[in-house]
Design a protein around this nucleic acid. Structure first.
Lengths: 147, 147
DNA sequence: GATATTCCTAGTATAATAATAGGAATAGAT
DNA sequence: ATCTATTCCTATTATTATACTAGGAATATC
């Protein structure tokens, strides 16, 4: 339950993966909606900030859809998630000036949250759409029960 | 906004820090409530799972309160947060068997979420209450505007 | 002109969060 | 004994965020 990613960020990555899969051809949201089983209306909302951020460009009308604005290896998962969700800060008192005075100046925990945010961005920024396409992502160690 | 920690986990760390600061003496929630400006009733809810997990022990009555059950260097921030919030999994389809079939078996993104969860736990488990007490936490690199 | 698409704004149901409220049990102080 | 400070427990509630749905306007192709 802590450090959860909302469906917006989650779906944004799946969405961009589908757009990347189609290469130079236009991918329609109707098609992606079917493949990934996400409502088209919701996808429209999610792709808007991605377009504004210049990660995809859309084309209206019959045969239209979206294509990547950059090469798959130039687009990181971090860019995608931050475009739809904003900066990666686990608690408000880090990064948001309007909340920084809600905790004392000498708060020892603040550096913990900074490190966590940095670690998350480190992982997300190290993975590109090209990595997703080629399946070349290192398998994370997942501890099992009783280990 | 993504990967946010709720106040329960956030406050749990501040709470444990205050308990640790008092060493062997009992810390009352009334006092911690005043120092950290968190309502006592809410602190009571937060400390319960910490007590159940064996991180603190409580003593009722006048002069009562809570003390650490272990040495500060034996208690990690990760233990604290997971005790009150559950396991660190950014999306439901990782870790929760009831949701693992909602996405396809070959989902390329799943490893991303696994790696993120592992990175978060890596940071949280590397920091102990002793580190908070002594202030010996490495400063995370925080990028500034226009850098 | 029919249709498939992006593009835009608003509303809404559900769930999670962040508490508050009220009290019972217990230990020490007087 | 009684008073008070504390933990301990259960329930309720206000607020917010999430995760959508609805309805339509613009535009490009057939």
């Amino acid at each position: 339950m802590p450090f959860r990613l909302s469906t917006r960020g989650h779906y944004a990555v799946l969405l961009m993966y589908e757009v990347a899969r189609s290469g130079a051809a236009f991918s329609s949201l109707a098609n992606i909606s079917t493949v990934q089983k996400i409502s088209q209306g919701y996808l429209e909302q999610i792709i808007r900030p991605l377009r504004v951020a210049g990660l995809v460009s859309g084309r209206k009308g019959f045969g239209g859809g979206y294509t990547l604005s950059k090469q798959p290896k130039e687009v990181t998962v971090g860019e995608i998630i931050r475009a739809v969700e904003g900066p990666t800060v686990p608690v408000k008192c880090v990064g948001d000036p309007s909340h920084m005075d809600s905790c004392p100046d000498d708060c020892r925990a603040r550096r913990v949250w900074q490190q966590v945010g940095q670690a998350i961005d480190g992982v997300l920024d190290s993975i590109t759409l090209q990595d997703l396409l080629s399946g070349e992502i290192a398998v994370a160690f997942v501890p099992r029960k009783g280990e």
